[in-house]
Simulated assay, not measured.
Amino acid sequence: MGKVINKDKLLESVKKLNLSESDYEKIVGEKCPSIELDDYKNYKIQELKTACNAEILGGFYSNANGEYKHYGLSYEDQINLEGIKNNLAMNIIAEATYYASGEECKPYIKEQFLQLYNEAMSFKTERITTCKLLVNQVKEMNSVDLIKSITWEEVEWNE
């Protein structure tokens, strides 16, 4: 018994630009159904947003406490950074205790922690802004080849 070909999954791969229409036709043995340009755009936009979010959640590097270390930016980390920054800003606390990835908590004077917070927010904002710019470019594109050419991995960051 031969392999069962799932045409719907193959068509999704074409929409996601992982499979060409001609490859679809070779595999299935029939013409690829017409795919609207907006379908390609929507998949590319989702791909860009997913990659952006993954990069943000992957964290950033900082030397705010004198050593160049990685800091997580999970949703919980972002909430913690914001809360500590607010407590420092309102003088509820005079210094902070925080941690680099995989390390124990260490004390940070106010200026060190605010530097760490600012670097985290700059990292996050730069990614979000870049994602929005790329999404807007994709929305304006008129060809699949142009849409294919936009990738998150090609972005060069100011680190």
Rank of each mutant, 00 (worst) to 15 (best):
Y71F: 15
F60T: 02
K41Y: 08
K110Y: 08
H70I: 01
I109M: 06
K44Y: 02
F60H: 04
E103K: 00
K106V: 00
T125E: 09
E55Y: 12
M121V: 14
E76W: 13
A120C: 09
A96N: 01
G102A: 08
A89W: 01
I45G: 11
E111R: 11
P33Q: 05
L48W: 03
D38S: 15
L48T: 08
K44S: 06
N86T: 12
E126H: 07
E111D: 14
L114V: 15
A96T: 01
Y61F: 14
E47D: 12
Y68K: 13
Q46F: 07
E103N: 01
I109P: 04
S74F: 14
E36Y: 03
E67R: 12
E82R: 14
L73I: 00
P107N: 04
K49P: 09
A54T: 11
K31A: 14
L81H: 05
N80A: 11
P107S: 08
S34V: 12
I27Y: 06
L48N: 06
F60M: 07
Y108P: 00
K124I: 13
F123K: 03
G29F: 05
A94E: 14
L116M: 05
G29V: 06
Q46Y: 08
N63L: 03
D39S: 15
P107I: 00
N87T: 13
T125V: 11
N118F: 02
I84H: 01
V28N: 07
Y98G: 00
E111P: 08
M121C: 09
E36P: 07
G83P: 05
L48G: 02
A120H: 01
E82S: 15
E111N: 10
N53Q: 15
T50V: 14
Y98Q: 00
I79R: 08
K85N: 14
L88V: 06
I92N: 12
I79F: 09
M90V: 14
Y108R: 03
P107G: 00
S101C: 09
E95V: 10
M90N: 14
G83K: 09
E25W: 10
E76T: 15
N91D: 15
N53Y: 14
Q112A: 13
F123A: 05
K69V: 01
